Simulated assay, not measured.
Amino acid sequence: MIKFLTSSLLFALAFNALAQNHSSNGNPITDEWYADPEGAIFDSTYWIYPTYSDDYEKQLHFDAFSSKDLINWQKHERIIDTSQISWLRQALWAPSIIEKNGRYWLFFGANDVQRPSRNGYDPNNDINHYGGIGIAVADQPAGPFEDYLGKPLIDTFYNDAQPIDQFVFKDVDGTHYFFYGGWSHCNLGKLNDDFTGFIPWEEGNLFKEITPEGYVEGPFMFLRDGVYYFMWSEGGWTNGTYRVAYAMAESATGPYERKGVILQTSEGDIATGAGHHSVIQRLDNHEYIMVYHRRPIPNEDRDHRVICLDKLEFNSDGTIKPVVMTWEGVEKDTRNNN
């Protein structure tokens, strides 16, 4: 028995040492099923906030992952679940996070609203009459998070956009722009200072529609060398048509010039249906990484999706090169070189 334990311990130590010395992260970062990952960097640590990918009635919490080196990822379980969101009944997905004033604001879609809710919450009606985009807040990136408003931030349809798949972008002037929308419509709003609502546009509307050609869901934006890159997912999220396209603009509010698709089903046997992504910039060499989900081959279920990291590279004119899906993933961040 002692000999067995000793052998097992030696194997575990050897495995951990090997993992520490890997030069690339290896895709996926975990074999567990997750989707819609948002990458972020807080206090020199990489974070990923994904959807827990399962049947809707089981998709009722968020986990998060953190790493110092892009190789070794620590799982933070149940950073928020139904016990912290009183109005949540069905489906929690597509988190988006931002730090403001030393606190961490987690935006999410909940209850899979299927039709406009014009008269507010009626407990006697189906749960799909109430839901939308909510906010949770915490003092640490790993939570625990608690519901901020006690109700959705957006609970109805504007410009026919389903209130899901939100992304918050802080511009250089401090404005927090709010991109969101499903059902092939994308809206843009401006959050107020305390994140309790929106600042109307000059025309008086809370949201303006900015839907680019091909848009389905999953908006994202980042700024590089004075260029605003607006990105989104196209196709069907349940199959191999899912993919990522992008546009370029001179401001966060557009106009956006569509450039094309940069991530899609691999021609080989790596994966299909790659999409609903985010982008982070490495801390060691300032290169860019696409954080996305894809469907492994063979695919076991509608919800069988996994989180992957691959390089995001640019041409000399600032356009984005097609992202190549790999098994290797991205190179280790060697800042600590441990």
Rank of each mutant, 00 (worst) to 15 (best):
T175K: 01
G260L: 13
Y228G: 06
G275R: 09
I280L: 00
L188T: 10
G181F: 11
G235E: 03
G240Y: 13
T175V: 15
E202K: 10
W183E: 05
I289Y: 04
F169A: 06
S278Y: 04
T265N: 02
G182R: 01
T265Y: 02
Y288D: 01
M231Q: 07
K170S: 13
Y292V: 07
M248A: 09
F220N: 02
D193A: 15
T175D: 15
N187W: 00
E209F: 11
F207R: 00
E217V: 04
A245M: 12
T211M: 07
A271E: 05
A249H: 03
F230K: 05
P255H: 03
V172K: 15
H277A: 06
T175S: 10
A249C: 04
T175I: 15
A245C: 13
Y228W: 08
F178A: 11
V227D: 02
L223P: 03
Y177L: 13
R294K: 15
F195P: 03
A247F: 09
Y228P: 06
S251L: 07
Y228Q: 08
D173K: 12
V244Q: 01
E213G: 11
Y177A: 10
N239D: 14
E213V: 15
N239Q: 01
E202W: 08
A274E: 03
H176I: 07
Y292N: 05
R258H: 15
G226R: 14
G226C: 13
R294T: 14
E234W: 03
E267K: 14
I270M: 06
G235Y: 06
C186M: 15
E234T: 11
A271W: 12
T211L: 11
N239E: 09
G254P: 04
G236W: 13
C186H: 07
Y180C: 05
F222H: 09
F230P: 07
H185Y: 08
D194G: 11
T196W: 14
Y229G: 11
I289N: 08
E213H: 15
